[in-house]
């Protein structure tokens, strides 16, 4: 079971969090023309890297904040966690 350091609450067990996928995906801006392909990329296509992965987790049973977690998909090691609005 992972041990995730919520930037607000500290180290907490994985069971307090829910996974939110790739944190590098950026939603296209509202009211802007988006090509079919760009939209499909945004909605469906995700990389599945072997190694470092920046991902979203929500601390649902804690502060309810969405946070960014840099996790190694191979070793499950978590190197850093960031607040949602933190620049990386």
């Amino acid at each position: 079971m992972l041990h995730i350091k919520c930037p607000y609450c500290g180290l907490r067990p994985q069971t307090e969090f829910s996974y939110g996928g790739d944190a590098t995906v950026k939603r296209p801006e509202l009211n802007k023309e988006v090509s079919d392909q760009d939209w499909d990329n945004f909605v469906y296509l995700r990389k599945s890297p072997r190694g470092k992965h920046l991902e979203l987790w929500q601390h649902i049973s804690g502060c309810r904040q969405w946070i960014k977690v840099e996790r190694d998909t191979l070793t499950h090691e978590i190197s850093t966690t960031y607040k949602a609005n933190e620049n990386i």
């Binding site: 939603r27 929500q58 649902i60 309810r64 904040q65 969405w66 949602a84 609005n85």
Partner: peptide, 16 residues
């Protein structure tokens, strides 16, 4: 529960 998370997602990450 899902709707609340959904709203929080957009408020915290997409349209802060």
């Amino acid at each position: 529960a899902n709707v609340l998370s959904h709203l929080e997602y957009y408020l915290q990450l997409v349209w802060p």
